[in-house]
């Protein structure tokens, strides 16, 4: 049940996208997200969609798997689309009781939906092709300059990678505790809001206790291996740009230029 959430998960296959330097993927994702707000034309969205599809094809991740990840945000999508649809002033097309739909509203709602879907697919494409460790490595390296202004980049990156590492563990743990309580007759699917909230207690208490226990264990294990922060720490696999990374940057730059041009189409 909870295992179906694919956002933030890594999909292990071998592809050019998987092998790219995480910094390239981070930067590209950022630029892709920005590009979605640069364009206002249908041509732009079609082009962005085509680019996205191409990357999905190259990444060898089944399209179905990516779409499944969208399910988790359907509600969010629905709310933002309906707000835009009904609350944008302008030329009226038809009304449903006190709700009126305007031409402008329809347009913004549609654009909003497309943007959100692209946004989610784009960013989940990054996490699907990059392991959490690579991701934080990339972040640590690209934000390294902040060290000069005394931002503890390494510590933040470490915290992030631990947090990411713990997501699947805690999901699995939740799944196990839920099943254990279901075996004792717990019911999570029926009853009113209050009853359902109360039904969560037998999951949340053991989950918190186990999270604290795991955190304490991890801290101890790190100390036992003399972890003392980032100073003087070297890496087994230092990040280094290769030819494919430069090509990827070039392609992203080209993509951006096209997106900017479509603004005037």
């Amino acid at each position: 049940m909870i295992r179906d959430i694919t956002i933030g998960q890594y999909y292990p296959t071998d592809s050019v996208i998987h092998r790219l330097d995480p910094r390239v993927k981070l930067a590209s994702t950022m630029l892709f997200l920005i590009s979605l707000f640069l364009t206002e034309s249908i041509v732009g969205y079609v082009f962005a969609g085509a680019a996205l599809l191409a990357v999905i094809r190259i990444s060898r991740i089944p399209f179905k798997y990516i779409v499944r990840g969208l399910k988790a945000v359907v509600i969010l999508l629905f709310i933002s689309v309906s707000f835009n649809l009904f609350l944008t002033p302008g030329e009226e097309i038809f009304r449903l009781g006190f709700l009126k739909v305007t031409r402008e509203g329809l347009r913004t709602a549609l654009y909003m939906a497309v943007r959100l879907i692209y946004l989610i697919i784009g960013s989940s494409l990054m996490t699907l092709t990059t392991t959490p460790n690579q991701l934080t490595d990339g972040l640590e390296k690209s934000l390294g300059f902040l060290n000069k202004v005394h931002v503890p980049v390494h510590e933040i990156a470490m915290m992030m990678s631990i947090a990411l590492r713990f997501i699947p563990i805690l999901i699995e743990e939740t799944d196990k505790i839920m099943k254990a309580q279901m075996a004792r007759g717990a019911d999570f699917d029926t009853g009113n809001l209050m009853q359902r909230a109360r039904a969560m207690v037998p999951i949340l208490v053991p989950l918190f206790i186990s999270a604290f226990r795991r955190a304490a264990d991890l801290a101890q294990a790190m100390e036992a291996r003399c972890y003392h922060g980032g100073a003087g720490r070297t890496k087994l696999k230092p990040l280094r740009y290769e030819r494919r990374d430069y090509i990827a940057y070039l392609l992203v730059a080209l993509y951006l230029v096209v997106m900017v041009v479509t603004r005037w189409l």
């Binding site: 196990k176 505790i177 099943k179 254990a180 309580q181 279901m182 075996a183 004792r184 007759g185 207690v201 037998p202 208490v205 053991p206 206790i209 186990s210």
Partner: peptide
């Protein structure tokens, strides 16, 4: 069924709450 077929999970003490 779950009452008749009782299942004790591994490390069941982690489900005490």
């Amino acid at each position: 069924l779950r009452q008749r077929v009782g299942l004790v999970f591994q490390y069941p003490e982690y489900q005490l709450f």
